[in-house]
Simulated assay, not measured.
Amino acid sequence: MPATIITTDDLREFKTELLEEIKSLLDQQSSGTLKQYFKSSDVMEFLQISPGTLQNLRTNGTLPYTKIGGIIYYEAADVQKAMDQHRTHHNSGFRK
């Protein structure tokens, strides 16, 4: 295998390209065009629920999902929406 020599200019060009790609991704995310997805393990950890409870949320339609190649993904906005829809407001009993 022949050796490849990397110059300082090569590294500068790589750095510039990498920074441009990162900037593009951040711009997409801030504009809402880049969606964030979670795997089941992330959702279970975030919501502190069991695999069975997560299955129930999928089955009853509370939490939409996408399955690709045997892996289930949840859109971050859908997880937040489910949290908001099940928020309760009650009087804590404390008086001012």
Score class of each variant (00 low, 15 high):
Pro51Leu: 06
Met1Cys: 09
Gln36His: 12
Ser40Ile: 01
Thr4His: 09
Ile49Gly: 02
Leu11Thr: 03
Asn60Ala: 02
Leu18Gln: 08
Tyr74Ala: 02
Gln29Leu: 15
Met44Gln: 08
Arg95Ser: 12
Arg12Thr: 09
Thr7Lys: 04
Phe94Met: 13
Leu18Gly: 01
Asp27Ser: 11
Leu25Asp: 02
Thr88Met: 14
Asp27Thr: 11
Ser50Ala: 07
Asn56Trp: 09
Ile49His: 03
Ser40Ala: 10
Asn91Cys: 12
Tyr73Trp: 08
Leu26Asp: 15
Thr88Pro: 08
Phe46Ile: 09
Gln29Thr: 14
Arg95Pro: 06
Glu13Pro: 03
Lys35Ala: 07
Thr8Val: 14
Glu20Arg: 02
Gly61Met: 05
Thr16Val: 05
Lys35Gly: 03
Thr53Leu: 13
Tyr37Gly: 01
Lys23Arg: 13
Arg95Lys: 14
Phe46Arg: 10
Pro2Gly: 07
Tyr73Val: 01
Lys96Gln: 08
Ala76Ile: 06
Ser92Phe: 11
Ser40Leu: 00
Ala76Ser: 10
Met1Trp: 09
Gln28Met: 13
Thr59His: 15
Asp84Thr: 12
Leu25Ile: 04
Tyr65Ile: 02
Thr66Ile: 06
Thr59Ser: 14
Ile72Arg: 02
Thr62Arg: 08
Leu54Glu: 00
Met83Asn: 04
Gly61Arg: 09
Leu57Gly: 03
Ile72Thr: 10
Ile49Gln: 01
Glu45Ser: 11
Pro51Cys: 07
Gln29Trp: 15
Arg87Tyr: 13
Ile5Glu: 06
Leu25Asn: 06
Glu75Cys: 08
Gly70Cys: 01
Arg95Glu: 12
Leu63Arg: 01
Gln80Ser: 10
Tyr65Gly: 00
Ile5Phe: 09
Ser24Tyr: 04
Leu11Gly: 00
Gly61Tyr: 07
Thr53Pro: 09
Thr66Lys: 05
Thr59Met: 11
Tyr65Ser: 04
Leu57Cys: 06
Tyr73His: 04
Gln29Met: 14
Met83Gln: 10
Arg87Val: 13
Arg95Trp: 09
Leu19Arg: 05
Thr33Gln: 12
Asn91Tyr: 15
Gln80Val: 11
Gln48Gly: 15
Asp10Pro: 00
Asn91Glu: 14
Pro64Phe: 03
Ala76Thr: 05
Tyr73Ile: 03
Glu17Phe: 01
Gln55Met: 12
Phe94Leu: 15
Thr8Trp: 07
Lys39Trp: 00
Glu20Tyr: 03
Ser31Ile: 12
Tyr73Ala: 01
Gln85Arg: 14
Leu47Cys: 00
Lys67Leu: 04
Asp27Val: 10
Lys23Ile: 05
Ile6Gly: 00
Gly52Arg: 13
Gln28Ser: 11
Leu18Val: 06
Ile22Glu: 09
Ser41His: 08
Phe46Asp: 03
Tyr37Ile: 03
His89Gln: 14
His90Leu: 15
Glu75Asp: 13
Gly32Thr: 06
Asp9Gln: 08
Leu63Cys: 03
Thr88Leu: 13
His86Ile: 10
Asn91Ser: 14
His86Ser: 12
Pro51Asn: 10
Arg58Lys: 13
Met44Phe: 03
Gln85Asn: 14
Lys96Asp: 08
Tyr37Asp: 00
Leu34Asp: 07
Gln48Met: 13
Gln85Gly: 06
Glu13Asn: 05
Asp9Leu: 08
Gln36Glu: 10
Val79Asn: 01
Leu26Met: 12
Asn60His: 12
Leu11Phe: 04
Thr7Met: 01
Pro64Ala: 04
Glu21Trp: 02
Gln55Ser: 13
Pro2Met: 06
Arg87Asn: 11
Phe14Trp: 08
Arg58Ala: 04
Arg95Asn: 12
